[in-house]
């Protein structure tokens, strides 16, 4: 007997979640009217950290690329913002876009270099590249040299600046989630998951492994550049050591590992946890980082899929519909006159 089968992506559950998410974003967009400056700054920081975490997850959790050098693009974005605004006199908000473009452009030659390495050596290679960018940029007197530089925002109303920066950060944060979602649903995403699961088999199935990885790397790096732009639009003060600090990567790794590698919700959870911890523990300075590191190790060993992974294991909660699902619809008799004889 023939059954009818429907192949679809979303379930009712996920459609509801999607609706809730849109409402949520609208509420967040109204933030400047709802919250005071302090809260806005906090939310702003949350969103750009979220974007960074999503990107690191895209690289490591989906493409299997462990990069400890994404701070290169944060720095590139920051310096691009500064150069566009201070040196070229452009609009500071547009500078964020320029930051993204700069990162995009530089990601290609960087990829050509670092992709000559694999695995752990790839990781260190990305760090070396970040160091090279730091050394080169911090030696440019026009860009402030070794002591750093400050982005000029004279003539812009501080409240206005805060609002717009908030919106930009919100856009980047939410945008990063949407971006990852659509990438994974695309052909690129299919190739990615094939590569993650079995690289050799993926290659023989026609997936261009190298190009897939480069594309993901460029996407992630561009968003990191955008994030770098908005970060320094908010912070204003660039300092080579801090701007290119590997602590950005420490954060990214922590958020993704603890939240959950390889899921979209994982980094959201991880960033929330990091944020919460930061509010309470930041006073401890280095001890805070020790705790982060220890927690990350324990999670990696005991719960490799992170906190969100534990949740999914218990209750299957498909918020983000990426997989194709096959759903049986009720059995119906074949249409009249279809000419199929002998069935049943």
């Amino acid at each position: 007997m023939r059954e009818d089968v429907v192949i679809e992506r979303s379930t009712r559950m996920s459609r509801l979640t999607g609706l809730a998410a849109i409402v949520g974003v609208l509420v967040l967009a109204a933030g400047p009217m709802l919250w005071n400056d302090g809260v806005l700054r906090m939310m702003l920081e949350f969103f750009y950290l979220l974007a960074l975490a999503q990107m690191w997850n895209l690289l490591a959790g989906y493409a299997g690329l462990v990069s400890i050098g994404q701070q290169a693009y944060i720095g590139i974005g920051a310096y691009a913002l500064f150069a566009f605004t201070n040196v070229l006199g452009g609009n500071v908000f547009l500078g964020v876009l320029v930051a993204g473009v700069a990162a995009f452009v530089l990601a290609f030659p960087t990829a050509a270099l670092v992709f000559r390495l694999r695995g752990g050596y790839f990781a260190i290679g990305t760090w070396v590249v970040a160091e090279v960018y730091r050394l080169v940029l911090s030696s440019q007197a026009k860009l402030g040299g070794g002591s750093g530089a400050t982005v000029t925002v004279i003539g812009i109303d501080p409240t206005f600046r805060l609002f717009v920066t908030y919106w930009i950060s919100l856009a980047i944060g939410v945008g990063s989630i949407v971006l990852v979602f659509y990438v994974l649903r695309s052909r690129l995403g299919l190739g990615l998951r094939a590569v993650r699961d079995r690289e050799g088999a993926a290659a023989t199935s026609g997936v261009n492994v190298r190009r897939t990885k480069v594309q993901v790397y460029v996407i992630a790096s561009t968003v990191c550049g955008l994030a770098g732009g908005v970060i320094y639009l908010a912070l204003l003060r660039l300092q080579p050591a801090a701007t290119f600090s590997v602590n950005w990567t420490v954060f990214m790794i922590f958020a993704v590992v603890i939240g959950g590698l390889g899921t979209i919700t994982g980094p959201i959870v991880g960033t929330l946890v990091y944020f919460a911890l930061q509010q309470y523990l930041a006073d401890l300075g280095s001890v805070y980082l020790i705790i982060l590191g220890a927690v990350a190790i324990v999670v990696m060993l005991k719960a490799p899929n992170g906190l969100w992974g534990l949740v999914i294991d218990r209750w299957s909660v498909p918020f983000f519909p990426i997989q194709l699902r096959v759903r049986r619809t009720a059995r119906r008799p074949p249409p009249e006159g279809s000419g199929l004889v002998g069935e049943g």
Binding site: V66, G120, A123, V250, I253, L289, G293, A296, I297
Partner: peptide, 11 residues
């Protein structure tokens, strides 16, 4: 291994 050794380094 990469993430655990990185964690050890941070600690």
């Amino acid at each position: 291994p990469l993430l655990v050794t990185f964690g050890i380094a941070v600690i």
